[in-house]
Simulated assay, not measured.
Amino acid sequence: MAAPPEKKTLRIGVLYEHTQMTDLAGVDILGNMSTKSVNLVATLEPRVSALLPLSTPMEFLYISSTLEPSWTTPDMFVKPTHTYANAPRDLDIIMLGGPDPAAAHEDSITFLKKASKQTKWILTTCTGGMWLARAGVLDGKKATTNRMFVAKHAGEWFPKTEWLDQRWVVADGEFEGAQIWTSGGAGCGESYVSNTR
């Protein structure tokens, strides 16, 4: 019997700069489905190795404006692996947590404009939706963000986006098959992870 074809490694870019850590809990959920994590657990419990065919190889890229440790709540620092300048633009997934969208680094806006044209899934939680809107990626699209901001701030600041007061909203991305998932607060967003596989 021939061996099954080798699975493509998913490249997941996580913009981790001045964000709320809870908003990016989906990173850990995805990571638990990775081949590396399933193999790790299988060393402790051999029955878990039956899940290996369902796992996917994954590479996580932590992206920020510099390679210096990047602040996230609650006063934790994450070591970036890439900067906005040198991160690949053709990722499988981009994940955006919730920063102050007005204070997002300008290099992140340039990165999002370019990467959105080549990335299959973009996933935002909380004010990450407004971060993506600031880059113009949500112009003419339906989206949501932290639901406290939907009625007033999001519409005032980013009027080219149709903001909906929903737990999550799915919109077409920039090319056929691409999708943009925006979600409200951290409790709303984890639902999108199971739908990206």
Rank of each mutant, 00 (worst) to 15 (best):
E6Q: 15
K8V: 12
T9W: 04
I12V: 15
I12Q: 01
I12F: 00
G13F: 04
V14Q: 03
L15D: 07
H18F: 11
T19S: 10
D23R: 11
A25Q: 12
G26I: 13
N32S: 14
K36P: 00
S37L: 06
L40W: 14
L44K: 15
L44P: 00
V48M: 12
S49V: 08
P57K: 05
M58D: 09
E59L: 10
E59V: 09
L67V: 09
E68I: 06
E68Q: 15
P69Y: 09
D75W: 07
F77Y: 14
V78M: 12
P80Y: 05
H82V: 08
N86G: 06
L91D: 03
L91W: 01
I94S: 07
M95D: 09
G97W: 06
A103C: 07
H105V: 09
H105L: 07
T110G: 01
F111V: 04
K113F: 00
K117C: 02
T119C: 02
L123E: 05
G136Y: 01
V137F: 01
L138V: 06
G140T: 06
A143T: 09
R147T: 13
R147M: 10
M148Q: 11
K152R: 07
K152Y: 00
A154T: 08
K160Q: 15
E162Y: 00
D165N: 13
V169M: 07
V169Q: 04
V170E: 15
V170T: 12
D172C: 03
A178C: 03
I180G: 02
T182H: 08
G184R: 06
A186G: 15
V193A: 07
S194I: 13
R197S: 12
